[in-house]
Design a binder for these strands. Structure first.
Lengths: 230, 230
DNA sequence: AAAACCTATATTGTCGACAATTCACCAATA
DNA sequence: TATTGGTGAATTGTCGACAATATAGGTTTT
């Protein structure tokens, strides 16, 4: 069972690579939230022309990772309580629908792969490893999203929402516990999909994301409290 | 009660205007579905530099109105049965959530405005006018979307999904009847929002959009049947 | 002293030219 | 004849330079 490979065909142009590099640097905080993106500065730092930087920034804007104002420039988005709330509301709606559609459209083979992933995940949890837990969690959600077979939905979730979520996760240190609980939730979702129960799959996925949201918000709050400066 | 003004601050740069012009030409079919967008050709036709055209095409790609391949070029999306299906699935999820959030976040004034809009709409329906019906319908949905107060949600629906939907509507002639039925559905949705019943508002909105979808698909099918060529 | 206005500077927006890539056409070969 | 390989025209990708716009600082005016 090979780990999932992303849909996006690998970058070919310089603009592609620069976009991906910039996105990574923003998501991981190398470029700080709310900081200004100077085109000339970036073009020297990344050793590409300003045109390339401009195209990359445009794409970052479509991902909602930066905000741009005409004749003024682009800034990295700020990480706020409200932003996280909005993000999870959209995620709940979209990924709930993804689970509903996955219950209808996933092949039996894809479902059996999903079950295998789940048992691998289970062993990892039992052995006490937490490092790969997040990757496994992502893999799980990705499969269901792809299982929806809805290209619009997939692109919205994979190309923009998930990078933003990862930005919050990475920068506010939301590894979070919730390992065993989340695992049970995953199990029930897969069960619903196996039964081709679209309605239930959606409900369970939405509740799962709601729980994750509440957990994230707790982490965010304690994180903010722990550093009253900033 | 003044008609709703769009959120997007008016275009300032040439790229803004070109983007909006191109988007309109695509949505209204002046530039045909599946046709190739030649950068040089467009730059002469719209009398702007290729850089401007490239930026506009990039933005059109984020709206899912065109698809781009590296080193090959951009094409306007095709209008297909599956595409319409996917579109309405995403719309159901997002606008359902919008209605849910609107029930919580709309001010009393905004709700009363919505009620006023509804009665205006009612008079229009009674007097037999159908021309302004679509605009009124759009206005109704816009207000609820904005009422969600969720910027992510608003941008997804207003900046991309709705243009795609309008493209299907305009080009496949989906004015559709469904006037009085839709009106009742609208009434119930507003009722739920007035009662601050988020759960019900979402359910009703989703059903409303499901009905609209089924109606659209019927129209699409008959449209395809009526022109077996193409 | 506060407000309005101008000026200098830095940043973004726009442009035309050059480089890299694709695609179609034609020739050569098995 | 079918297939492979190469050549050239056309298109996209990238670049540096110039134009337009915004910001800051100082000067003038009330």
């Amino acid at each position: 069972m090979v780990s999932l490979r992303l849909i996006t065909d690998q970058p070919v142009t310089i603009a592609d690579k620069t976009f991906i590099q910039l996105r990574q640097d923003i998501v991981e905080g190398v470029i700080r939230p709310s900081s200004k993106l100077s085109e000339t500065e970036l073009s020297t730092k990344y050793a590409v022309s300003r045109a390339v930087i401009r195209e990359a920034i445009n794409r970052l804007e479509s991902c909602h990772l930066v905000e741009r104002k005409a004749n003024i420039g682009a800034r990295v988005v700020a990480l706020t309580q409200e932003g996280l709330e909005e993000l999870y509301q959209v995620r709940e709606a979209l990924e709930g629908m993804a689970a509903r559609l996955a219950a209808v459209h996933m092949t039996e083979e894809e479902i059996s792969d999903l079950n295998n992933l789940l048992s691998t995940h289970f062993k990892t949890v039992q052995s006490g490893e937490t490092y790969y837990q997040e990757a496994g969690d992502l893999d799980f959600h990705y499969r269901i999203i792809l299982g929806s077979k809805n290209t619009q939905l997939i692109s919205m979730l994979v190309d923009s929402l998930y990078h933003l979520i990862r930005m919050y996760r990475v920068q506010l240190g939301m590894a979070g516990p919730r390992v065993t609980t989340a695992f049970d939730e995953h199990r029930h979702i897969v069960q619903a999909i196996s039964n081709r129960d679209a309605e239930l799959a959606e409900i369970l996925m939405r509740r799962h994301i709601l729980y994750t949201k509440q957990n994230s918000q707790k982490t965010l709050l304690s994180h903010i409290n722990s550093q009253t400066r900033m």
